[in-house]
Write a protein that binds this DNA or RNA. Structure first.
Lengths: 112, 112
DNA sequence: GGAATTCGTTTCGGGGGCGTATTGTTCTCC
DNA sequence: GGAGAACAATACGCCCCCGAAACGAATTCC
C-alpha cells in the first residue's frame, strides 16, 4: 500500500464515521475497545492502562462511557476481588465487526 | 484485505497514536484535516460543514484548535470577503504525511 | 440605497475528558 | 492479625467540545 492510498483510506473511513454520526468514541476509547476485542483476555484496568501508556482513571472513564453504550462490560475477578475484568458484549462485537467491514470496503475502492 | 486484517490495522494504528500521545485530534478534526489535504481546494467553513454533515461552529472550532496546533491556517477570501479559505501548512502536511506512513508501515506488518 | 440573504464567529448552558491526588476495598507478607 | 501494597473508583479543578441561537460583516437583489 502506498502512502497516498493509506491517506485516502484513512480519510474515507473517518469520513463515513463522522458523516453517519457514529464518531462518539475518542481515539483512546477506540484503542481500548479494539485492544479488548483483538488481544487475548483477560483484560484488567491496570493492564490496559499500562499497555496504552495512560493513567488508570482514563481506563475507568473509558469503561464507564463504553459500558453505558453497551460496547463493553465489567466483572469482578472472583479469584482476586481487587481486579476488574473487562468483557466483550454482543453489541460491542457487532460494532467492532462493522468497523472492520468498513475498512475492508473502503480499501476495496482505493485506486490502484 | 480481510476484516480481521483491517481490525488489526486499525488497532495497531490507533495504538501507536495513543501510545505516543499524539491523539489530540477528535475524529471530526481528523476528518477535517484529511479533507483539506486530500480534496481539491478551495475549502470554506460552509463547504466543509456541508461535506461532513456537521454545523458550522464545529468547523470553526476545529480550525481554531488545529490552527493553534499549526496544522491548518485561515485566510479571508478577497474575492468575497464573507468567505474564509482554509489553507494547508508545512507542519500540517508533515503531520498528515506521517499518518499515511504509519498506516503503510502497519499494513506491511499484517499477517497474510 | 435599503432590505434580505449569506457567511463565519461568538455566546450560552450542558456534558465529557484530562491528570493529580485521594479513598475504600482486597490481598500479601511477616 | 496487623502493616503495607495493590487495585479500581472517585473527587477536584481545568479545558475542550457540543448544538442552538444570536451576532456582525459582507454581498446580493430589487
Amino acid at each position: 500500500m502506498r502512502p497516498s492510498q493509506a491517506l485516502r483510506l484513512l480519510h474515507d473511513f473517518s469520513y463515513v464515521l463522522v458523516r453517519d454520526g457514529e464518531s462518539d468514541l475518542s481515539s483512546r476509547q477506540l484503542t481500548v475497545l479494539l485492544t479488548v476485542y483483538l488481544e487475548p483476555p483477560p483484560h484488567t484496568v491496570r493492564g490496559l492502562a499500562a499497555k496504552l501508556g495512560v493513567t488508570k482513571p482514563v481506563i475507568t472513564r473509558a469503561l464507564d462511557t463504553m459500558g453505558r453504550l453497551g460496547l463493553l462490560s465489567r466483572r469482578r475477578d472472583e479469584a482476586d476481588r481487587r481486579n476488574v475484568i473487562v468483557q466483550r458484549t454482543v453489541k460491542g462485537a457487532l460494532y467492532v465487526e462493522r468497523l472492520g467491514d468498513l475498512v475492508v470496503e473502503k480499501a476495496k475502492d482505493l485506486p490502484r
